[in-house]
Design a protein around this nucleic acid. Structure first.
Lengths: 241, 241
DNA sequence: CGACCACTTGAACTATCTCAAGGACCGTGG
DNA sequence: CCACGGTCCTTGAGATAGTTCAAGTGGTCG
């Protein structure tokens, strides 16, 4: 640490493409694992785009960093039933075209800003950049861990527990206006229908459970979507795990 | 293909450690991505062990190939509710100590034979063996895909659909005595309680659904555990996806 | 202002659970 | 060989969490 390290970082910073300097992905995202020369190559091949809420993400042969916004991943049954199988929040990366046996669609919940790279280019970089490879693996493992955690919720938790767990999950992932550690507040990026599709419930049940949490003084709800956690500890108690 | 390829394979085969030659993992498993020299190194550092049904797998700092048997992965809630979040069948590899936020335990369902390697050694090999890296990533992605598929089942399918999907899943993963493509039969490696913990149901509901499938002529059940699929197509119809 | 959309709330309904009893298989010890 | 107890599984009947159907509220936007 100290002088030497700071020196290296400064040198790297000087070489970094202009577009990347202010980018979240450089810190929390994948790009942090890359050298300046690689960043340049990637930046040249990158395309930025915005997706409007409700629109499906282009799932061509690209890896994308999410610069801002929230994305849902859904798996649909043939008769229209839908299950949300995951979310992606701001500094995540998204690699939809990972071959899947069952089709999974990615849809923007909010306005989403993407920075996309050709799949082949990223995979070549992975081969000669152990740091990048490890980062990708680490993130996929985190997704797997989260998926399994929600399996437990879907299979074994009550509606009340599911709802509490969900609020806590969103609170920890969204960049909220939380300054006092115990009074987090944020705008839900989902409709009640989306929440229901995530928790394996109906929108009516979700609504009832949210109302109950409010009645019990655990949360406050303003304008339907703005949630304030009055007391994180009380919410945690209700998660059932 | 042809002569050149066959020649290379033969050469490799000659150098392969004796223990590995008859090993399933060489074909369907991870080891297939390794050179003979790497296999030797790995074989020297490997330890084989057997785990009795019901015993928890050692989850130290190792990667393990499953040589035979079936393993369940479970996540427990504090009050004893349990959810099975995945299975591992014979040529899979197992890397429990992937850092997880919520504790996941691996338990043998049948007698299980393992071939384990030090985690650090495998990870070093991954750095200079792109083929191995890709294989690991591919498998983790497959697990993620399966986890998400089951999320949809847990959240949105009926008990009948869950049961049908489960039977189909086991049938395609277990090496069954299937010769005619349409009359698969196998021994369930799980108790009704395990099935219930996987499907997010009670054992009574599982039992009822299995009875109904039998009554409807979709399956036969002998000695509680031995299942014959009379007609795979009929089962698929009942999966709901 | 009126229509629409997302949400809430109530009341009846149902899939699944809970509780309870009984049956099949298995190893053990007589 | 049978009786015994234990474990796993099945089946029934009643209870319930969550769904379905239906009506109503409140905010937003033309």
């Amino acid at each position: 640490m100290g002088v030497a390290m700071a020196g290296r970082l400064d040198a790297r910073l000087a070489d970094i493409p202009a577009t990347c300097k202010s980018c979240q992905a450089l810190h929390g995202g994948l790009c942090g694992a890359l050298k300046a020369s690689q960043l340049k190559k990637l930046a040249n091949a990158s395309t930025k785009c915005e997706v409007t809420p409700g629109a499906e993400l282009p799932d061509g042969e690209t890896y994308s960093n999410i610069l801002s916004g929230v994305v849902k991943l859904t798996r649909d049954l043939s008769d229209g039933r839908q299950q949300i199988v995951g979310f992606h929040f701001a500094p995540d990366f998204l690699a939809t075209p990972f071959a899947t046996r069952w089709p999974i669609r990615a849809t923007a919940l909010t306005r989403v800003a993407l920075c996309s790279f050709p799949k082949a280019l990223v995979e070549r970089m992975m081969d000669d950049t152990p740091g990048l490879r490890r980062e990708v693996l680490k993130r996929v493992l985190k997704e797997l861990d989260e998926a399994r955690n929600w399996m437990a919720a879907l299979g074994r938790k009550t509606a009340a527990e599911k709802t509490a767990s969900f609020l806590l999950m969103v609170a920890t992932n969204i960049d909220s206006d939380s300054h006092p550690a115990d009074a987090v507040s944020f705008d839900l990026p989902l409709t009640r229908a989306d929440i229901a599709d995530f928790l394996g419930l109906t929108i009516e049940t979700v609504s009832r459970e949210l109302s109950r949490l409010r009645a019990d003084g655990v949360i406050q709800i303003a304008k339907k979507r703005h949630v304030s956690l009055e007391c994180v500890a009380k919410l945690e108690e209700r998660c059932g795990d």
